[in-house]
């Protein structure tokens, strides 16, 4: 399983303070999500590409992620151009709606732009850093502890599940579309849940024994450096540029 492929690295994006990256990414995503114009969404995509280049991630893995998201978007390309109302391009029997093509293009631009910014800013931090960053941003502490512990045990439970599954396969289990298959999966998942629940009780007791008060203490409080602020200001400027492009194109009435 390929988790957290992008969090290790030495680029400016990796080195920047996680809190500023989270706020910047949130701000940028919200601006892009509210775009209706193709020019605004197009500019956002360009900025996304620049940020992604700045993160210097493994290109093949990034391409795979983007491919997956765009496969999901194919679903919109498969329906919208043929179903939307309004004037259409006619090719014999085929009516391709202009509004449908425009909507599908807009969605594709926006989705890719936000994903790129997310990859560049959020996926470049480790989950632990994000969890502590969210707590520092005053999200409910219990939620952040829940996030960090869920993350901590995903890998353990993944191995537990795989062990059960391997045992089933060794005993001749062949998944098919049958009630037997669903019962077997039900038992495998049920056993994983039982194990996770029992482990939860043990972890709870162990933490209690060590005086856990529901809060993590950091030995090195994170510090924001000058270049982090510079990146943050650049992000806000980029997001504002998208917003201005969007508003002018709305005022001008062009797409």
């Amino acid at each position: 399983m390929d988790f957290e492929n992008f969090s290790a690295g030495t680029s400016i994006m990796h080195a920047a303070d996680v809190r500023l990256k989270l706020i910047g990414a949130l701000f940028f995503s919200v601006v892009v999500a509210l775009c209706h114009s193709l020019s605004g969404a197009g500019l956002a995509l360009l900025i996304g590409l620049v940020l992604l280049a700045g993160a210097r991630l493994a290109p093949l893995q990034v391409a795979r992620r983007l491919l997956l998201v765009n496969l999901f978007l194919l679903f919109f390309w498969g329906t919208l151009p043929f179903s939307a109302a309004g004037p259409a391009f006619d090719f014999g029997l085929l009516h391709i709606s202009q509004a449908g093509v425009r909507l599908a293009t807009l969605v594709t631009l926006k989705t890719n732009a936000i994903i790129m910014v997310f990859l560049a800013l959020v996926a470049t931090s480790s989950m632990v850093a994000i969890g502590h960053g969210l707590a520092a941003l005053r999200l409910p502490n219990r939620l952040c502890v829940l996030l960090l512990f869920t993350y901590r045990y995903i890998f353990v439970l993944q191995q537990e599940y795989q062990r059960l599954r391997r045992a089933a396969l060794l005993r001749g289990f062949v998944p098919a579309t049958s009630l037997h298959t669903y019962r077997t999966y039900g038992n495998l998942l049920g056993m994983t849940l039982v194990k996770s629940w029992q482990r939860g009780i043990r972890v709870q007791q162990a933490m209690q024994l060590r005086g856990f008060q529901g809060r993590f203490y950091l030995l090195t409080p994170p510090a924001v450096r000058g270049r982090d602020w510079l990146l943050f200001v650049l992000l806000l400027t980029a997001a504002s540029a998208v917003a201005v492009t969007e508003l002018t194109s709305r005022a001008g009435g062009c797409p």
């Binding site: 512990f149 993350y151 901590r152 045990y153 849940l193 996770s196 629940w197 482990r199 009780i201």
Partner: peptide
């Protein structure tokens, strides 16, 4: 119940 919730969530 925080830990059991976290573990079930991971499961």
């Amino acid at each position: 119940r925080l830990m059991t919730t976290a573990l079930l969530s991971a499961a």
